[in-house]
Structure formats: C-alpha cells, structure tokens
Design a protein around this nucleic acid. Structure first.
Length: 288
DNA sequence: GCGACAG
DNA sequence: ATCTTGTCGC
C-alpha cells in the first residue's frame, strides 16, 4: 500500500494550496533583518544551513530529507541530520513546498530540540524563493514556517512572469565572464525577481538566486557566492550528497559504502582555480 | 494537439 | 528528482 502517488492532485487541492501560498506570502520579508547581512565580510555570521530531499529510484514516496549546518567561513559540516520519510504529495511545478517542506520543518525542529546552539543563521534552499508562479516558492514557504532567513537556490530557470530561457537569456548567460558575475531577472511587472549568478569562473550554467525570507537579494547573491567551492553552494551540495549517501547506505548496495568520497554533480568541478588550488576534497569529517 | 515543467 | 564513466582541459 502507499506505493503510488496520484499523478496530479484534484483541482480543488491546487486551489487550496494557492490560497495557502497567498496567505503566507503576506508575511515574507524581502530585506535584510540581521546585522551580518549588511557587513561586507559577513562578520557575525558563523553557521549556514542547507536542506535537500533525495529520492529512492523506483519509489515515488520514499525519500531522504536532510539538513546540514556548516561553519562559516570554513564551510565545514558541523551538523547533519538525514531521515527517511514518506512523501504524501506528488510533485507539481509551483507547489514543491507542499511535497518537501513538512519534512524540512521537522528537521529544523529536531535541531532546535537537540542542538539549539547549532541553529543556522540562514538556510540555503534547493529551489526558488519569490521567483515563482505565485511569488512564494519553497524557500519562502520554509522561511515563513521556521522564521529563519532563507535563500532560494535553483539550478534551472523557472519560466514564470515573462521569464524565458530563450536565445536572449542564453546570450546573457554567455556574456557572464567570471565567477560572481550576474544579471537581474525581471518579471513582467518590472520587478526584479532574482539574479542569474555565475557561481564559479568555469561554470557554464548559472544559479538562479531569489529571496526566500528575511534577507535582501543583494545579500542572498553575495552569500551564495562565498559559499561556492563548486557550482552548487556547499550547504546545499552537502545536504544533497549526504541525503543520497544515506539512501544508498540504507537501501542501496549492501557491500562497501557507496561513495568513499564526494561525487555527484555532473560537470561542476572547477577546472583550475588557484584560489582553492590544492584543496582538501578528501575531508570525510562527520561532526556528530 | 503540442509544449512546458523549481525538485 | 533519478539513471551514470570516462574523458577533455587547465
């Protein structure tokens, strides 16, 4: 039982979800609320969190929800929480939060009970914030429910409000020269919904950053950039790696531990970056 | 009927 | 999201 999930929720459910998004949307704060967010060096920032949900291959309900906390500026994992969950909602573009957010909220609450001193000061979320059909993506949704600054980090452009991944957009991407270069994503109404960010000198595909909650777009982009050793910022990347490893460790091949080191993420490795030159990607630290 | 579609 | 090795480039 409970192996299949309805391909698409009834129209009535979508209507209820939209109403809920509209209700919570009024609470979003799209500006800096913390002192460290305005500091050029982010002094005062000590912990950055990342969340992700990975799925079991042939199953539409089994998944692993993960929350990691990294120290800043070292970007070392100081907390990790992976848990198998049973999803109750199917994936519908525009309503990702209703599928994943309940389990992410649970993870944050477990941290609050267990190690409140390790609570992150900001959370990078896999998905969009205000760059969304109803202006209320998963990063906003999670931010409101846990009342923490959140940043939406998407790997693909969500084509809403006139935004299109067309030839012009691709040309703008081509013109991004170095890591840190970006351009605004303006919606039809003339509002800047987010920024396309080249997160690394040798990264071809940009990240699509948008405000989730309690942070300005400028600070969101700046923070995302300083968290990038690869294309995807470390908090989100570590959450992804660890949730996938957890699944393999739990249901995967019985033999040796799946990935003896970091893998995943297709072509995100920097070619040669003197900044990180001879880094130590062999760190297998699992604090706690 | 055809294309679009965060994760 | 998931299925996946080697390979090209600096």
């Amino acid at each position: 039982m409970a192996e299949e999930l309805p391909g698409s929720p009834p129209e009535e459910t979508l209507s209820l979800w939209k109403r809920e998004q509209a209700r919570l949307k009024a609470r979003v704060v799209d500006r800096d609320t913390e002192a460290w967010q305005r500091d050029p060096a982010f002094s005062g920032l000590q912990r950055v969190g990342g969340v992700d949900v990975s799925f079991v291959k042939g199953d539409s309900v089994s998944a692993c929800a993960s929350l990691v906390v990294l120290s800043y500026p070292e970007l070392k994992v100081v907390y990790e929480d992976c848990r198998m969950v049973s999803l109750t909602a199917p994936y519908v573009s525009g309503f990702l939060a209703f599928r994943e957010v309940p389990f992410l909220v649970d993870a944050v609450r477990r941290l609050q009970e267990k190690d409140p001193h390790l609570m992150p000061q900001v959370l990078l979320v896999d998905g969009n914030g205000v760059l969304h059909h109803q202006g209320f993506g998963v990063a906003c949704h999670l931010g409101i429910l846990i009342d923490l600054p959140c940043i939406g980090v998407a790997k693909k452009l969500l084509q809403v409000d006139g935004l299109e991944n067309n030839a012009l957009h691709k040309e703008k991407i081509r013109l991004l020269r170095a890591g840190g270069d970006s351009f605004p994503l303006m919606g039809g109404s003339g509002t800047v919904l987010g920024m396309a960010l080249k997160s690394h000198d040798h990264s071809t595909k940009p990240l699509y950053i948008s405000v989730g909650h309690k942070i300005s777009l400028e600070a969101a982009v700046r923070l995302t950039l300083v968290c990038c050793r690869f294309r995807v910022p470390e908090p989100v990347r570590q959450a992804d790696i660890r949730s996938r490893d957890y699944i393999r460790r739990t249901l995967g091949v019985p033999g040796p531990p799946a990935s003896g080191r970091e893998r995943s993420q297709k072509a995100q490795r920097p070619k040669a970056c003197p900044q990180w030159g001879s880094e130590e990607p062999a760190g297998l630290e699992i604090t706690h």
